[in-house]
């Protein structure tokens, strides 16, 4: 089943009088349970494509459809709800709220989604932290964690609302080999639950985890 489709999407940015093309026309579709790896050199538009597919950015041209419905037809509110309930995000730099504990960071998506009881949220988050091996550190603050630990917290947060698609932008970029391997294994596990993973990476090791690899080429286009 096709979950996500990109139809001739391109993205350009205006800098002063000049327009810089960050993503040339791309068409792709993502099946449920697929592990899609986007690879290519820096500046080829991997992150831009991830942003456009996830609704964090809008394409300059073309269309992105989720379950057949164009994101362009959705309101800001609907896109926000979609990101909350159906998408999960892992970034190269683990973004965590500095004044929130590990478990509070994992709880964050629940505060922007449908209201649930506190005990239900807590139980789910503890399960997730257990799953990523962070259960002993639930009350720690982000600045007391290592890069690998932070990334595992981010991973737990990405899984919080049972997403259908996980977008991972260089998730192993700031990790050592051992932690990279842990994260990639965790991502791979999700596809077994019919969750799609779209990962942009430079890491040659990461490519082997994908069920499909799409290579993007570097652009030199100034329009």
């Amino acid at each position: 089943m096709v979950l996500l489709e990109a139809d001739k999407v391109s993205r350009s940015f205006r800098i002063g009088d000049q327009s810089s093309l960050a993503l040339s026309e791309h068409t792709l579709s993502v099946q449920a349970g697929e592990f899609l790896v986007l690879t290519g050199p820096s500046g080829s538009g991997k992150s831009t494509l991830l942003n456009v597919l996830s609704g964090l950015d809008r394409p300059s041209l073309g269309e992105v459809r989720y379950r057949g419905r164009s994101l362009a037809d959705m309101t800001q509110q609907e896109i926000a709800r979609l990101r909350n309930s159906s998408f999960g995000f892992i970034f190269q730099t683990p973004h965590l709220l500095p004044d929130r504990t590990v478990i509070e960071n994992v709880e964050l998506p629940f505060h922007y989604g449908c209201p649930r009881s506190f005990s239900e949220i807590r139980r789910r988050c503890l399960q997730l932290l257990e799953y990523v091996g962070m259960a002993p550190l639930t009350s720690r603050y982000p600045d007391t964690l290592s890069g690998g630990e932070m990334q595992r917290v981010v991973f737990a947060r990405a899984l919080a609302c049972n997403p259908e698609v996980i977008f991972a932008d260089e998730p192993t970029g700031s990790l050592d080999a051992e932690n990279s391997c842990k994260i990639l294994e965790l991502l791979k596990k999700q596809t077994a639950n019919n969750c799609s993973v779209i990962m942009a990476t430079h890491d040659p090791g990461g490519i082997f985890y994908g069920t499909r690899v799409v290579r993007l080429e570097k652009l030199h286009a100034n329009v």
Binding site: S54, L56, Q76, Q77, A80, R81, R83, N84, S85, F89, H95, L97, L108, P109, Y112, G113, R157, C161
Partner: peptide, 16 residues
């Protein structure tokens, strides 16, 4: 700014 981006990524609407 990055924190705001993060909140939006996890589902915060403009209203929130």
């Amino acid at each position: 700014t990055r924190e705001i981006g993060l909140r939006m990524a996890v589902g915060a609407s403009q209203a929130r």
